[in-house]
Simulated assay, not measured.
Amino acid sequence: MNTVKFKLEPLTCPSCIKKIESKVGKVEGVEEVKVLFNSSKVKATFDKDKVTPEELKTIIEKLGYAVVA
């Protein structure tokens, strides 16, 4: 398993956590996803043979959250 971390623009509400964790967590190959509200960071553990960090980043961006790092 591999791990990737993304820094997002500041999250504005706690429901953002559920939205991101729910969508990314349903992606085939994602084992775990955790969103830290106070630091606006996303950490995902995934199988690199099933999904790439770039695909995860795209999913987050399509939800309306800007990945800044």
Rank of each mutant, 00 (worst) to 15 (best):
53 P>W: 00
66 A>Y: 01
63 L>V: 12
5 K>C: 13
32 E>V: 12
48 K>W: 00
20 I>P: 03
60 I>S: 00
38 N>P: 15
41 K>P: 09
31 E>N: 15
32 E>K: 15
17 I>T: 02
55 E>N: 04
45 T>S: 13
52 T>G: 08
28 E>V: 13
66 A>E: 14
36 L>H: 10
50 K>M: 14
46 F>C: 06
37 F>A: 00
53 P>H: 02
40 S>A: 15
57 K>S: 12
61 E>L: 06
58 T>A: 14
30 V>G: 14
18 K>D: 03
22 S>I: 04
36 L>I: 11
38 N>Y: 10
13 C>N: 01
51 V>H: 06
5 K>T: 13
51 V>Y: 07
58 T>G: 14
63 L>A: 06
64 G>R: 01
52 T>C: 05
55 E>S: 07
15 S>M: 02
9 E>L: 06
42 V>T: 05
55 E>W: 04
37 F>D: 01
5 K>W: 03
34 K>G: 05
60 I>Q: 00
26 K>R: 13
10 P>G: 07
52 T>M: 12
43 K>Q: 13
48 K>V: 12
27 V>I: 14
54 E>C: 11
3 T>Y: 07
20 I>L: 09
1 M>Y: 06
18 K>F: 02
5 K>V: 11
34 K>R: 15
47 D>H: 13
13 C>I: 01
9 E>G: 06
15 S>L: 00
27 V>T: 14
62 K>G: 03
44 A>K: 03
1 M>L: 04
7 K>I: 13
31 E>R: 15
34 K>E: 09
52 T>H: 05
46 F>T: 04
20 I>D: 05
9 E>P: 09
28 E>Y: 12
9 E>T: 13
47 D>N: 15
46 F>W: 10
67 V>M: 13
63 L>K: 12
19 K>A: 07
45 T>M: 10
34 K>I: 14
29 G>D: 11
